[in-house]
């Protein structure tokens, strides 16, 4: 089961919670339960990926002479930051 990369984190989280709720209600057939479970697993995987999707980075946005955007890393005082 594929989940669109554009899906919002909170939407996916809500979907996952409603899948669990449905499964918990125990009204699904075994076939439907398995389908719901698979959907849930895909959502968990998606959410876990989203949680660590970007790396901590601080950039400064400027424009060059021709008006094009430039970004460069910002030196900060923070520990462990580059």
């Amino acid at each position: 089961m594929d989940i669109s990369a554009d899906k919002k984190f909170e939407d996916a989280l809500q979907d996952l919670e409603s899948v669990v709720e449905k499964l918990d209600a125990g009204t699904l057939s075994l076939e439907e339960s398995l389908q719901a479970f698979e959907e849930g697993v895909a959502l968990v995987r998606f959410l876990e990926e989203k949680l660590t999707e970007v790396e901590k980075r601080v950039e400064v946005l400027t424009r060059d002479n021709s008006g094009l955007f430039q970004t460069q890393n910002l030196e900060t005082d923070e520990e462990g930051d580059t």
Binding site: L16, D24, L30, F37, G40, V44, L47, L51
Partner: peptide, 26 residues
Amino acid sequence: WADLSDRVAGTARALTTAMERTVTDR
């Protein structure tokens, strides 16, 4: 972030538990 991560992990556990219970029930 830690709260969010906990929430995802907790819901994932609930998913597994619910599936296991479904299978046991069946």
